[in-house]
Nucleic acid binder design. Structure first.
Length: 201
DNA sequence: CAGCGGATGTGCT
DNA sequence: GCACATCCGCTGG
């Protein structure tokens, strides 16, 4: 995989995101994140860990309180980026799912470095680790300035399928949602069972 | 390796 | 006004 090849792959279309959130979450495993920050080298990483947030009925989702100013984007059309600030200092990125009017999003928690992170191909202790939602956003230069970005437009940031076989999938409860009552136990975290880049937590 | 504190937006009271 | 958050790096034992 090279930057030139990854950049030429077509972005996943809106129809990919316009499906049930758990389906989108599972199928995102193994897809490529292609990031081209302005004036800086391109970055490519493979998704290895995600979580599904199922909208208004999901006590762990930011959408649980309805379309508040922060969460409104999750109620809109699919294929857009929802970025929020957590604990006052870390960013987390989500891809909006479901049809327009129905809230849903997939949190991207970890990815395997492919291009542009130093020691291409995969030094686990790379300078910019992608293991964890906050570190992933930092490494890909994603901040709240990117909130609302159209992932299907395929410019600065998009998702692509390079044709690699789907990874062996595993699932578990989501991280950091203990407050969510019965929803805390739901196995809505999906990860590549064989990847060393899955977040330990 | 458990514990803790950082720094701020968000949503409820 | 205020408690708390889809986290992470540092500290001390």
């Amino acid at each position: 995989m090279t930057e030139a090849i990854a950049s030429r792959l077509p972005p996943l279309p809106r129809a990919f995101f316009a499906r049930p959130t758990t389906t989108v979450a599972r199928e995102l495993l193994g897809k490529l994140l292609v990031r081209r920050p302005a004036g800086r080298p391109a970055l490519v990483a493979r998704v290895v860990e995600v979580e599904a947030y199922l909208g208004v009925r999901d006590a762990a989702s930011h959408a649980r309180r309805g379309p508040t100013p922060r969460a409104a984007i999750m109620f809109g059309p699919p294929g857009f980026l929802y970025v929020y600030l957590i604990y006052g200092m870390h960013h987390c990125m989500n891809f909006v799912t479901e049809t327009d009017g129905v809230a849903g999003a997939v949190l991207i928690r970890a990815a395997a470095p492919l291009v542009g992170f130093g020691g291409d191909g995969g030094d686990r202790r790379a300078r910019h680790p992608l293991t964890g939602p906050g570190k992933l956003c930092a490494a890909l230069a994603i901040t709240r300035a990117n909130n609302g970005h159209d992932l299907t437009a395929g410019r600065d940031f998009f998702v692509a399928d390079d044709g690699s076989p789907a990874p062996r999938r595993a699932r578990s409860a989501r991280i950091g949602v203990e407050y969510a009552g019965e929803w805390a136990a739901r196995k809505l975290r999906f990860f590549d069972a064989r990847s060393p880049y899955v977040c330990g937590a």
